[in-house]
């Protein structure tokens, strides 16, 4: 693991622990912001750690937003374990803990398991669109997040990503060329 990635991941997990320590209304907003910061590293390094943390924190923020009364103590403990593994440079232990965290999030409430899986999937799509915003192609972002391009394109179309894209060739010129192909 790159040291820059490890240091950032450590700072982020410590911040998540601070946020979760006291339940407040602003928690979900703060978690989403943190997740966005992590995705910067994911765009550059495309490492599993940054990607998993970004998806995990975003999913956690959505779950807390919709189920504020659930007990997150086990999630909190696993996060502490993840922090300790990073601090002690135990990468394998860290990877295992992250996997446990995903399982724990999925198990938070058996009644909402399907919903939680959906939240994780939505988090992957959301983070994929962020990667595209940072300049990665849709296919590359889908590959990194392990989702299909169908899912990502469908989501990206509803964002303002295309509005900010520079128009290098005028629509009129492109259409004129297209007409010449299908004359």
């Amino acid at each position: 693991m790159e040291s820059a990635v490890r240091n950032d991941a450590l700072q982020i997990i410590k911040r998540v622990l601070e946020i979760l320590e006291t339940k407040e209304e602003k928690d979900t907003m703060e978690l989403k912001e943190l997740s966005n910061n992590t995705i910067h590293n994911a765009s550059i390094f495309q490492d599993e750690c940054s990607i998993s943390i970004a998806v995990l924190i975003y999913a956690l923020s959505k779950i807390i937003e919709r189920n504020p009364e659930l007990d997150y103590s086990r999630v909190f403990n696993f996060l502490k374990e993840a922090r300790d593994s990073l601090e002690n440079d135990k990468e394998e232990e860290f990877d295992t803990t992250i996997k446990k965290l995903f399982s724990e999030i999925s198990r938070l409430d058996s009644k909402i398991r399907l919903y939680v899986q959906e939240v994780i999937n939505q988090a992957q799509i959301k983070k994929g669109s962020k990667l595209c915003e940072h300049g990665l192609s849709c296919a590359k972002a889908s590959q990194i997040l392990g989702i299909s391009q169908w899912e990502l394109m469908n989501y990206i179309g509803k964002t303002n990503l295309a509005e900010n894209a520079p128009q290098i060739i005028d629509a009129k010129a492109r259409l004129k060329f297209a007409r010449s192909l299908f004359a």
């Binding site: 595209c132 940072h134 300049g135």
Partner: peptide
């Protein structure tokens, strides 16, 4: 349909600007 491949062919400098701006680095 997507912009990255198109920009890299048509205007790599614009793609570079987007990346710098969005990644804040």
């Amino acid at each position: 349909d997507e912009k990255t491949a198109r920009l890299l062919m048509e205007s790599p400098d614009r793609l570079h600007s987007i990346m710098k701006h969005k990644l804040h680095t």
